[in-house]
Design a protein around this nucleic acid. Structure first.
Length: 468
RNA sequence: GGCGACGUGGCCAAGUGGCUUAAGGCGUGGGUCUGCAAAACCUAUAUUCAUCGGUUCGAAUCCGAUCGUCGCCUCCA
């Protein structure tokens, strides 16, 4: 299995430290607002990578942090006149709700900075003792010059950065590139007591401390959005590796941006859609399909047209899935020979190549066409064929990619199984026999208005529910 | 200024030296089925991969130049 490693800008064979265990850390959201679908792309794709590792038989420990101390949080809390605690709790809850409707598998752990003050303080102390961090009047800075590996992730050379071009130079720092690991608290800001006085941790230190605490000093995979490469991940490496003398993470994975009109979707440009907003208009499967149809490292330009076309694709997946669920009930019928294994192989082949979900999705759709053809060319097919088809789609499209939700389809089928609809269909069938087309169409329209779509076939009329 | 990514059909997108006479999704034209529709299937939709040169028996794929787009170097997924 190949994984693209930002550390060396190339695909590398994936070799976990302690197989079959895999440790994975993903930089999560700052919980001061609803997350947008650009953030959502990162979360969903890391969810899919995790699920594929599980599919491959790995035992994955997956940690995603929630940043709950930071300037933006403080600013917004002041604006709203609430405590930072109250604000972050609110958005933590919203985050949990949103990932649920996005159908992500919950992380094994969602550590928060405010709950790891001791670990953070210990780590800073370690850096200070080694002479890598220095104290200027209660502010602790990391001395970039003391870590010779600085820049190895982002490929930046410290003397080539345009220092001070976009941010004011802080006179307290020895080197303008040095960054805060501990910030002295200002008037009115939340603070934690420490041996250096009251203050709060810098942004990067929390991830170092929490990753090491929950997953170990060296982990397998550390992931996040493309914009975190520098300075966030670069600084995490600097802090962690200077403290331990060990590799911090073996594989660094980064996700491409979701753009709007070719521009990065971001809070500051206010060109974003929140995930919860989009997810009231489209099923999670449609958004997930949109994401997996392109490669996780490529930029993806979001538009109404794209999500609409993804929704159409989802309908195609669901139509066959419903047929399969019904077909499983047929205990008699003709046995069909079919090479399902071929598709499992093609799927793994695609995913093994740096999680090529785009190709893997192509495999799924090839499969769908094949199965649809077989179903339309054969009558009375035995349930074992449907069972095998279900197994393939369930373990790939459902369990790994999350673009089909069989559980939901099953409940939809059940919910709609009410007498009234059946009555209407029977009335329409009778009207059709009487060649009363007008009445038949009327009944169909009434049901359609209620979100029930009828489909006639040789074996009678079936119905399905419209997607949102 | 430095670093990095990218430019494939009407739209999205995989492929990165011969398996590809370029997957898959959406759209569009034609057909099968149907009272009509829907769904599904069949079929047609790029002699071509930004442009121009080069390497090679062979290039969308490698090299060079040019044009264009985006990102990072500030908080950011």
């Amino acid at each position: 299995m190949l994984v693209y490693n930002t550390l060396r800008n190339r695909k590398e064979e994936f070799v976990p430290i302690n197989p079959p265990n895999v440790t994975m850390y993903v930089c999560g959201p700052t919980i001061y607002d609803y997350f947008h679908i650009g953030n959502g792309r990162t979360f969903v794709m890391s969810d899919i990578i995790r699920r594929y590792l599980i599919y491959k038989g790995y035992n994955v420990k997956f940690v995603m942090n929630l940043t709950d101390v930071d300037d933006k949080i403080i600013r917004k809390a002041v604006q709203e006149g609430v405590s930072t605690k109250e604000l972050t709790l609110r958005y933590e809850k919203a985050f949990m709700d949103d990932i649920k409707i996005f159908k992500m598998k919950p992380a094994d752990l969602y550590p928060k900075a405010t709950e790891h003050m001791q670990e953070i303080e210990d780590l800073i102390e370690k850096l200070e003792n080694k002479g890598i961090a220095y104290n200027v009047d209660g502010n602790i800075f990391y001395d970039v010059g003391k870590f010779k590996g600085y820049g190895k992730l982002s490929g930046k050379k410290t003397d080539e950065l345009e220092i001070g071009s976009r941010v004011d130079i802080n006179e307290e720092k020895r080197n303008p590139l040095d960054f805060s690991v501990w910030k002295k608290s200002k008037e009115g800001e939340p603070f934690w007591e420490s041996k250096w006085g009251n203050g709060r941790p810098g942004w990067h230190i929390e991830c170092s401390a929490m990753s090491m605490k929950h997953l170990g000093e060296t982990i397998d995979i550390h992931a996040g959005g493309n914009d975190l490469i520098f300075p966030h991940h670069e600084n995490e490496i600097a802090q962690s590796e200077a403290a331990t003398g060990k590799d911090f993470a073996h594989y660094w994975m980064h996700f491409g941006f979701l753009n709007i009109d070719k521009q990065k979707m971001s809070k500051s440009l206010s060109n974003f859609f929140t995930a919860r907003d989009i997810l009231t208009q489209y099923p999670a499967e449609a958004l997930r399909l949109l994401f997996v149809q392109s490669h996780y490292r490529s930029p993806l330009n979001f538009s109404k047209e794209l999500i609409e076309s993804a929704k159409k694709g989802t309908e195609k997946l669901n139509n066959l899935s419903m047929l399969i669920l019904k077909g499983i009930e047929n205990k008699n019928g003709n046995i069909i020979e079919y090479n399902f294994q071929k598709y499992f192989n093609l799927f793994s082949e695609a995913m093994d190549d740096d999680f090529n979900t785009s190709q893997a999705t192509g495999v799924i759709f090839d499969f769908i066409r094949d199965i649809n053809r077989i179903i339309s060319e054969n009558e009375n097919i035995n349930f074992s064929f449907y069972e095998d088809a279900f197994n393939f789609l369930n373990s790939t499209a459902n369990n790994v990619l999350g673009i089909i939700d069989f559980d939901e389809l099953r409940t939809v089928e059940k919910d709609e199984d009410d007498a009234w609809i059946v009555e209407q269909i029977e009335a329409r069938t009778k009207a059709k026999l009487d060649k009363n087309w007008q009445l038949a169409d009327e009944i169909r329209d009434v049901l359609s208005d209620k979100g029930i779509i009828l489909e006639d076939s040789k074996n009678g009329t079936t119905y399905k529910k419209k997607l949102i």
